[in-house]
Design a protein around this nucleic acid. Structure first.
Length: 476
RNA sequence: UCUUCCUUAGCUCAGUUGGUUAGAGCACCUGACUGUUAAUCAGGGGGUCGCUGGUUCAAGUCCAGCAGGGAGAGCCA
């Protein structure tokens, strides 16, 4: 029966026999193996007697090799660790040629290089920590909603809905791309396609979630999402995971409260369950920041930032107030913004960063945006100019949540769809939810990887998903 | 897609105003040592300087194109 390294390190007991299996991180002095099994960021030290070992076996104890070890857990005879394992017998299960294996203990591979060997990068401390934390965040999301009585809804990955306008879509088809069937006017005949119509990968499960919310009251989705945008940034992926709660009878304020509670819950959960990994990631971030000029370094360490977010309420301002703050800001008056500020503009990155990182220095919820820069389904406010939208902006990440109260009034929704050229006939199923027992409701979407970025302090979204899909890259 | 920067050994990087045989640290290999902590010490091997073309007596170095990557912007989560 295999014992996990995490359990040995967490246990107070000594002088018991264990079997452990894992991968060699380093082999020192022909005698000391640092072994890691992924259960924790920490290694355990295995002490072997080189005189008892076959020389051929000894030679195979190389960085990256997998081993099976039986031995006794004892108080460490040396300094640097509390316990160690004296091996009684051991074997190398899988060898690892050091001339070919790139992850050697003393190497300092860059994150960019590790991205090119994403199939091996799990075996590093950084990615071990990141993906254990990623797992915890995913689990915390399900636990949060489950404990509140939400129903987890699996919305379709292949959709025919082309209406939402959340971005460019990936087409799904079985038609031969070199010679597709065509109509008389030359257009491709999608009635011949697998689904009998043009289909794409989903860009959002929101519209389907709204339908289910009209029965269960509280639902959430958590699944892959695809955007075929040619986005090359540290915070965009072509394939990413999104969480979308949708709650009947909630208004915008309820929606904000839910989102804030949700984010704080996740952070609290990770602080409670992944402190070892967070401490390592905090150190990693501190080292990365040392490379930057002093004025670009963040004022808080990773753990300080996370504690700050759970201990302080998010700032809540309306779009109109945000514009006023920007107009009165130093960078605006000194003409340091690249983009002009006036009521009606979409906030640019530089504006969001000023509000979040300079002015409020904490997460900010901006509400009630002009209706012309937001989606058709958002509830129209009485002023006739704005909609009940809310975006949560996080330091270093930008928009981490986008949500709104939805337009539940059929006539107003139909009118807005017509204004925005959304085909109402095709969307009859969506409009039916407003025809039959419509109710006020609200929801939001949280970018899962952006949340992982925020919590781990990593700076590139490609380093918080196992195998990133970005323009020109679908390796592994 | 736009702007900008980068590409030299397995990894991280030097390489001067263009000038002989392109360097360092680590990794790797060989040997020594054996309570080490990114073990240490001595020795050794390792390069189509991203690719293609151009300028020049001479190109890692200058110019152009292409490819890949980073950062920022747009779009958004």
């Amino acid at each position: 029966m295999r014992t996990k390294i995490k359990d040995i390190l967490n246990s107070e007991s000594l002088d018991y026999t264990v079997n452990i299996k894992g991968w060699v991180r380093s082999f020192r002095n022909n005698q000391f193996i640092a072994l890691n099994d992924g259960s924790t960021i920490h290694n355990i030290q295995i002490v072997i007697n080189p005189e008892q070992a076959d020389e051929a076996v000894l030679k195979n104890i190389q960085t990256g090799a997998s081993m099976n070890i039986n031995g006794k857990v004892i108080a460490s005879q040396g300094k640097g660790q509390r316990v160690e394992i004296v091996a009684e017998n051991f074997e190398v299960l899988g060898t690892c040629n050091p001339e070919e294996f790139p992850l050697q203990a003393k190497n300092r591979p860059s994150l960019e290089y590790l991205r090119e060997i994403a199939h091996l990068r799990f075996r590093t401390n950084v990615f071990g920590a990141v993906f254990r934390v990623r797992h915890s965040i995913a689990y915390a999301i399900h636990k949060f909603f489950n404990d509140k009585g939400f129903v987890y809804l699996h919305t379709p990955i292949v959709t025919a809905s082309d209406a939402e306008g959340a971005g460019e879509m990936f087409r799904v088809t079985t038609l031969p791309f070199d010679n597709p069937p065509r109509l008389e006017n030359g257009e491709i005949d999608f009635t011949e396609d697998f689904f009998g119509k043009s289909t794409n990968l989903t860009v959002s499960g929101q519209l389907e979630a709204e339908l289910a919310a009209m029965s269960f009251g509280e639902v959430y989705t958590f699944g892959p999402t695809f955007r075929a945008e040619n986005s090359n940034t540290t915070r965009h992926l072509a394939e990413f995971w999104m969480v979308e709660p949708e709650v009947a009878f909630n208004d915008l304020k309820d929606n904000m409260n839910l989102a804030e509670e949700f984010i704080q819950y996740i952070i609290r959960y990770v602080l409670e369950h992944n402190m070892d990994d967070l401490q390592f990631l905090e150190e990693r971030l501190a080292n990365e920041e040392k490379q930057k000029p002093a004025n670009e370094r963040s004022e808080m360490s990773l753990l300080e930032k996370l504690n700050f977010v759970i201990n302080n309420q998010f700032e809540r301002i309306t779009y109109t107030e945000a514009i006023d703050i920007l107009l009165q800001s130093k960078p605006y008056q000194k003409k340091q913004f690249k983009y002009d500020v006036s009521w009606g503009i979409d906030l640019q990155s530089e504006h969001e960063r000023f509000l979040v990182e300079k002015h409020f220095k904490k997460p900010v919820i901006v509400t009630d945006y002009p209706k012309d820069i937001k989606a058709f389904y958002m509830r129209q406010n009485d002023d006739g100019k704005t909609v009940a939208a809310m975006d949560i902006l996080a330091p270093g990440i930008g928009e981490i949540v986008g949500g709104s109260q939805r337009e539940e009034r059929l006539e107003l929704l139909e009118k807005r769809m017509e204004e925005m050229d959304i085909p109402t006939e095709e969307m009859y199923w969506y409009l039916d939810s407003r025809r039959f027992g419509t109710a006020p409701h609200a929801g939001f979407g949280l970018g899962f990887e952006r949340m992982v970025l925020f919590i781990t302090g990593m700076t590139n979204i490609r380093d918080v998903i196992p195998f990133p899909r970005t323009p020109k890259n679908a390796a592994f």
